[in-house]
Simulated assay, not measured.
Amino acid sequence: MEIAGFGVEAWLNEFEKTATTDISQSSIAALTMQAVTALDGQQGQKFYAQLNATRLDYGWIEGSPEFKQQVSGLYQHVPADNVLQTNGATGANHLAIYSLINPGDHVIALYPSYQQLYDIPKSLGATVDFWHIQEDHAWLPDIDELAQLIRPETKMILLNNAVNPTGSLLDEALLKQVVTLARSVGAYVLADEVYEPLDDTPFVSIADLYEKGIAVNSLSKTYSAPGVRIGWTATPSVEITEIFRKYRDYTMICGGGFNDQLAVLILQHRAEILARNREIVRRNLKIYTDWVAQEPRVTLIAPHGISVSCPRLDIPVDDEKFCRDLLAQTGTLLVPGSRFDLPGHVRLGYCTDTETLQRGLHHLSQFLRQYDAD
């Protein structure tokens, strides 16, 4: 089995801990343990008392009943028994693709987007066709292209909704068109939905639109808890869930009692966390778009309340050299667009804490001024 290097992960693994101003990340500013445990209403005392009484055995293999019920409540058509806990959304994507895709299968993947969604199927011997997002179409794909790509034997359509790194969103009308095409050939539709928008943009899960829809999500992005490493698959289909169960036994035993307990607490108090994060998105997006408006070397298709963005830079060097030099000279970290097959762009995570965002944008503007004399 051969697989390409994971561009964005390799970049962050090399550089994220050396940056002093990190505006590369895709999560909304991470919560502290103190902030999460205080959600119990007793400054963490109730949480830690429960934790101290917990045996360090495997715990609930698929996730505790409370976890599964909390996740089920996020959907209209997914019973709790059809929720399977995974090691983040990356674990959920891997489980779903590994479970359903065989050598020689035909799949269609939204591109560019999260690299897992096309390179894992390739590594398994599938034929992968790309359904392209288009910058001149607000980073959205054309449904007519998907109609041309789909075949009678197409096994799966893989989506990233909202899209990393562009922050664009496939709305309900477009998703329904995808479902119509998928249903016509009996294809699965997997949607990595970790970037659920936090503005007033309506969002609908693929699991609530299609009987063969597979929703992947986690606590990492919208819920500001990437360190918990808890994600899930959710589908209305009992048959698909049973397939996942078999393959899951080979990829993951459990999420761990501590992580499950923390995940339940976060989901129980999702309203408070999402209110906090909506305010971060609102405040930081205005700072960011105001900055773009006065920065002549940056253009942006604004994200829809999503924690990632993909500005285009007007620079005379390639984006990877630019990002390396920016980090070396200012301590400011971005992800080169080339790591997403989007040269000339960068991923800028504007949902870090506001002070870091402002400092990073200031450093970026100062660094860009060196090209003004060209």
Rank of each mutant, 00 (worst) to 15 (best):
C351T: 15
Y75D: 00
A191W: 05
Y188D: 04
L348T: 06
G73N: 11
E211T: 15
S307M: 12
S72A: 15
Q34F: 08
A234T: 11
C310I: 04
Q34L: 13
L39N: 06
T166G: 03
A147T: 11
E2V: 05
L100T: 12
E242P: 04
T330I: 04
A207L: 11
A126N: 01
D40E: 02
L262P: 00
E279Y: 12
L181S: 04
H304G: 14
A38M: 00
L95A: 00
D81L: 13
H77G: 01
I206L: 03
I273M: 06
Q70I: 08
I23M: 00
H94N: 11
K46P: 00
G41I: 09
T127Q: 13
G88Q: 01
L170P: 00
N102L: 14
E193W: 03
A225G: 07
V78I: 07
E196W: 07
L267D: 01
A293E: 15
V36D: 01
V107K: 03
W291D: 13
R245D: 08
Y75S: 01
G349A: 05
A263Y: 09
T21C: 08
K122N: 06
R55C: 02
T251F: 00
L313A: 12
Y75R: 00
G337E: 01
E320S: 03
H94I: 05
D260V: 04
K246Y: 05
H137M: 13
A138C: 15
Q85P: 08
V78T: 03
Q294V: 15
L74R: 11
P65H: 02
R347D: 14
A215R: 02
Q43S: 14
D290G: 04
T241H: 05
E242G: 09
L100R: 01
D314M: 09
K212W: 14
I240K: 07
Q34E: 14
L361W: 10
L348W: 14
I133R: 04
G360P: 11
Q42R: 11
Y250W: 07
L170N: 02
P202G: 04
G255P: 01
L326I: 08
L181Y: 13
K68Q: 09
T86H: 00
D319F: 02
Q134I: 06
W291T: 08
L219C: 10
L146D: 10
A173W: 02
T354D: 07
V163R: 13
N82C: 12
C351Y: 09
H362C: 14
A234H: 01
D192G: 09
D171T: 06
N284L: 06
S27R: 05
A10G: 10
T20K: 15
L84H: 04
T332F: 05
E16D: 04
G125C: 11
L51R: 12
V194S: 13
G349H: 11
P112E: 07
H345N: 10
P236L: 07
D136W: 12
Y371E: 03
R229G: 13
A89C: 10
T251K: 10
L334C: 04
Q177L: 05
R339G: 02
G88L: 03
S64F: 00
F15M: 09
R312G: 03
S99K: 06
D341T: 07
K286G: 05
M1H: 15
G349Q: 08
P112D: 10
A80M: 09
A96E: 01
I315W: 14
I23T: 03
M33L: 14
L100E: 10
D105C: 05
I23H: 00
Y247P: 00
